[in-house]
Amino acid sequence: MKIVHLLPGLEVGGVETHVVDLASEQARSGHRVTVVSGGGRMVSQLHPDVTHITMAVHRKNPITGAICAVKLAWMARSKGWDVLHAHSRVPAWIAWWTSTISGVPFIVTCHGIYSLNAGLTPYRHADGAICVSKAVMDHQRDWLPTRTAVIKNGIPDPGVRWSPKEGGPFRFLFVGRLTKVKGIDFLISAFLPMANRQDWVLDIAGEGPLEEELREKVASAGLGDRISFLGYRDDVAELLSKSHCCLFPSRSEGAGLVLLTALAVGTPVIASDLPAFRETLDDRSLIPMEASVWTDRLANAIDHPDSPQPTSPPRSIHDMAVEVGEFYVTK
């Protein structure tokens, strides 16, 4: 099957990781796979048999989008593409226009809790929609086509297991974009009342627009020796294996690939009480977004360290790719 994925870029993030993993698994299974994006550092992580086309499918400009659609429609006809698979809102518009011109069906995956507005119009016109969680499907239901399915994310085997270092401070970990949606600003505020305790550290792996503001906040609180900004990391599973607890203070979430990786590694987690997280975690790991509650829970995690909680292992990338492939051909 000739499959084409469209997404804004391949810098860093959950959607980007999902597409890299899915496209690479499809290529390993014998499909001819192309990824169209604005480019980025994760292009190099695609399987060698995946073709990458750099194109401005991230720009919110109708003229640019139309030009991209015409180019892609020509490629679709000349190369005999079987399906277009869009992974964000702007690429969904371009996939819709490309499909209209070329006749190639297009599928969308809904990865997050999107704002419900006219920007989602292409989703209604898709030949099918995949939602990464029931929470996403319930939220966006009125903007989805008749043929819609929940297909849970799969992840590669992380290759490591939870083995935190004995002795030393309790090590918390946050992995994600440094944005308000991911709640990193809230998390640092929750740590401030614990400034007098010397028995913890927080590692922050990720980049984003809040980084400078957060660094200043940490420095002004005198916590520069305990809260470390690691920047982008491609060894997330290794970081998880060496941490005592991974934190997910998201204000909104579609599914959470890092959460699934943490569970696969066996790392204990604390997460905000969101519908998407409720599909994966039980009440012991979920707490409301109240700073005092988080501070108390963080302190309790230090004083009473958890063992990894028994959970069903996350599904494999192969199983997810098979289900996606079946969705492509089901009418």
Results as ranks from 00 to 15, higher is better:
Leu7Asp: 01
Pro8Thr: 14
Leu10Asp: 08
Val20Asn: 13
Asp21Leu: 04
Leu22Ile: 14
Ala23Gln: 09
Arg28Gln: 13
Ser29Pro: 08
Thr34Trp: 01
Thr34Arg: 05
Val36Leu: 06
Ser37Pro: 02
Gly40Glu: 11
Arg41Ile: 15
Arg41Lys: 15
Val43Lys: 11
Pro48Cys: 03
His52Asp: 07
Ile53Gln: 06
Thr54Glu: 15
Arg59Pro: 04
Pro62Glu: 07
Thr64Gln: 07
Cys68Leu: 05
Ala73His: 01
Gly80Val: 05
Asp82Asn: 14
Ala86Trp: 01
His87Gly: 03
Arg89His: 10
Val90Phe: 07
Pro91Phe: 03
Trp96Asn: 11
Thr98Asn: 06
Gly103Leu: 10
Pro105Arg: 07
Ile107Glu: 06
Tyr114Asn: 04
Tyr114Gln: 03
Ser115Leu: 12
Ser115Trp: 08
Gly119Ile: 02
Leu120Asp: 08
Ala126Phe: 05
Ala129Ile: 03
Ser133Gln: 05
Lys134Met: 09
Val136Arg: 02
Asp138Tyr: 04
Gln140Asn: 09
Thr146Gln: 12
Arg147Gly: 12
Ala149Ile: 14
Val150Phe: 00
Lys152Ser: 14
Asn153Ser: 15
Asn153Thr: 13
Gly154Gln: 08
Gly168Ser: 02
Pro169His: 00
Pro169Met: 01
Gly176Trp: 03
Leu178Gly: 10
Thr179Glu: 15
Lys180Val: 14
Leu187Glu: 07
Ile188Ser: 06
Ser189Asn: 15
Leu192Lys: 02
Met194Arg: 09
Ala195Arg: 13
Asn196His: 13
Val201Ile: 12
Leu202Asn: 05
Ala205Glu: 10
Glu207Met: 13
Glu211Met: 15
Leu214Ser: 11
Ala219Lys: 06
Arg226Ser: 00
Ser228Gly: 03
Phe229Val: 00
Arg233Ala: 10
Asp234Phe: 10
His244Gln: 05
Cys246Phe: 04
Phe248Pro: 07
Phe248Asp: 05
Pro249Leu: 12
Arg251Trp: 14
Arg251Ile: 11
Gly254Arg: 01
Gly254Cys: 07
Leu259Thr: 07
Ala271Leu: 03
Leu274Asn: 03
Leu274Arg: 06
Ala276Gly: 05
Arg278Tyr: 03
Thr280Asp: 04
Pro288Phe: 09
Val293Cys: 07
Leu298Asn: 10
Ile302Pro: 00
Asp303Lys: 08
Asp306Arg: 08
Pro313His: 09
Pro314Trp: 08
Pro314Phe: 11
Ser316Arg: 11
Ile317Phe: 01
Ile317Trp: 01
Met320Tyr: 06
Ala321Leu: 12
Gly325Cys: 13
